[in-house]
Every structure is written in C-alpha cells, then in structure tokens.
Nucleic acid binder design. Structure first.
Length: 264
DNA sequence: CCTGCTACCTGATGGC
DNA sequence: TGCCATCAGGTAGCAG
C-alpha cells in the first residue's frame, strides 16, 4: 500500500465511519497518498501525506484488495457484490480497490489529523511485542491492579493487543487461573506470565503469516488457529498438560477457557 | 479515578 | 420447518 494514492473513497455503509460523517472521511482521504502503514494495538493506521486513515476490525472486520470495477479481472472473477461481501468502505487505489468489509458492522474506519485524536489510541498501554515490555514492567502493571488476570490482560490500556483468545492461551501457558487477582501474582509467576504472553503472540503471528493471508481472495478466511490453540473454545476436552477437562467461565462478559487442574 | 455492564450488529448452531 | 436462545476474535459510553 505504501506510495499508493487514494483516487477516491466510497462509503457503502455509513455505520462504519460513525461517529464521523461519511463524507468527511471521503473528502479527507481523496487525493491523499499512503506514506506508511503501521499497527498500534489492534488499530491499523495508514499514515497519509495529510492525516491518518485509522481502521479497527473489532470482531468481524476484514480487508480485501479487489480488481477495479468493470475491469477484465473483475469480470473473470464474476464481480463479487459489495452487499454479499458486506463492504462498508472502498478506497480506489492504482493497485485495485482496498475494501473494508465487516459482516457485523462493528468495525470502524476514520480519518484523523493525528493518532492522538483517537481516545482509544491515546490510552493504549504498552505493546507486548516491543522491547520495553519487560518482566519488570509487567510486574509493576500487575501490582497496580486488583482485577482478575483475565480482565487485566484484555484491558487495552494496560497491555495493547491481547484479546479473548490470547489471554486464555497465555494464562494456560503460565499455569495461572483467569480469576487470580493481578496484584496477587508472585515474582516467579510474573516471569512465567511474561514469557507466556510473548510466546503466545509470537506463535500466533507465525500461524497468521504461514500461509500468508490472501488479500485478493474474498473467499479467504483465517484458519490455522487450531494448530496453536490449547484451551480456547475447547471446553470439555482434555487439558494437553494434565488431562483434566477444560472449563468455560464467564468473566467480564466474555468466555474464558482454562484448566482448573493446572491453572492456579 | 476505577470498575462492570450494556449496546452495538449479523450469522451460525442447537434445543424444542 | 420454524422459533427462540445463546454464542462469536471488541470497544465506547455510561452508571455507580
């Protein structure tokens, strides 16, 4: 995407730009050039020559790169309907149409003068893949919170980027109960949790990149989590470590999966 | 300030 | 077959 000029921007479903008016996104984005693409927590940022295009995929957002409408390539592929793919926003680039699609329409696309104009971005905590994320930093953060570890790990203002899958997985690797209070975690356990977080995210990245996502294929869906997942959505099945059945637990409005046998 | 709950959406699945 | 409840990778906004 780097260096591509946004020839036009179409909003098919204005819910995706809320609370920003769709036409504001369009006029701000049109004619701009993408300088750089980066990630902050779960946000995807397109740095433009003026301002930023910011995407958040929430639960079901996806990006597609489709052939230009009416092109030979589009006809060969049967011109997939925007409605069928639930495309909310479409950016016309030289290399094709970059489409933000989202079945549940919970994802968002905004234009911002700078990332700090997003409350969600400003308040993001430390990136667990960054150098600065050390055992010591994790220990300090944990010590300041009385919440259950599961809620702590999913709090984007503490550590940015961990969601429901990887919080369950990291706690399993660290042999810590999702219900354990953050400030009741011993030094040795902090060390285990830190290692677990970094390992889980690293392995997840491997799964996400091999095979690489097929941006140009609208049928493509992410598969391969099964290879790395040990407890997530595996209630009733044996724990790969101790053999006892994995349990599902409601915490903070989300499902938490863990092994009561070896997670304390 | 901190925490927990609910709304926001659509679609898949399973029980009756 | 249809109807209803529940669940799904997340966060903003609000009440207490």
């Amino acid at each position: 995407m780097r260096g591509q000029r946004i020839r036009s921007c179409r909003v098919m479903h204005a819910i995706a730009t809320r609370p920003q008016p769709a036409d504001e996104l369009c006029w701000r984005a049109t004619g701009r050039t993408i300088r750089e693409v980066r990630r902050r927590g779960k946000y995807l940022l397109f740095e433009l020559d003026q301002g930023y295009l910011v995407m958040h995929f929430r639960l079901s957002g996806q990006l597609f790169l489709l052939p230009h409408q009416g092109s030979v390539a589009a006809r060969r592929e049967g011109e997939p309907e925007a409605s069928a793919l639930h495309i909310d926003v479409e950016l016309e680039l030289a290399c094709g149409r970059l489409c933000f699609a989202d079945i549940r329409h919970l994802g968002r696309v905004h234009w911002l003068a700078r990332p700090a104009d997003s409350r969600g971005i400003t308040r993001l905590g430390i990136d667990p893949l960054a150098r600065e994320f050390t055992r010591g930093v994790l220990g300090t953060l944990l010590g300041r919170s009385k919440r259950p570890l599961k809620n702590f790990l999913m709090d984007q203002e503490k550590i940015a980027g961990i969601g429901n899958i990887y919080s369950s997985e990291a706690l399993w690797y660290a042999r810590l109960s999702p219900r354990r209070r953050a400030n009741r975690v011993a030094t040795q356990e902090v060390r285990r949790l830190h290692k677990a977080i970094v390992n889980v995210l690293g392995r997840a990245l491997e799964c996400c990149l091999h095979p690489a996502p097929a941006l140009r294929n609208p049928q493509w869906a992410f598969e391969g989590l099964e290879k790395m997942v040990r407890v997530y959505q595996r209630a009733g099945r044996p724990c790969p470590r101790c053999g006892r059945p994995i349990k599902r637990l409601g915490l903070g409005g989300r499902s938490s999966f863990f092994c009561p046998g070896c997670q304390r």
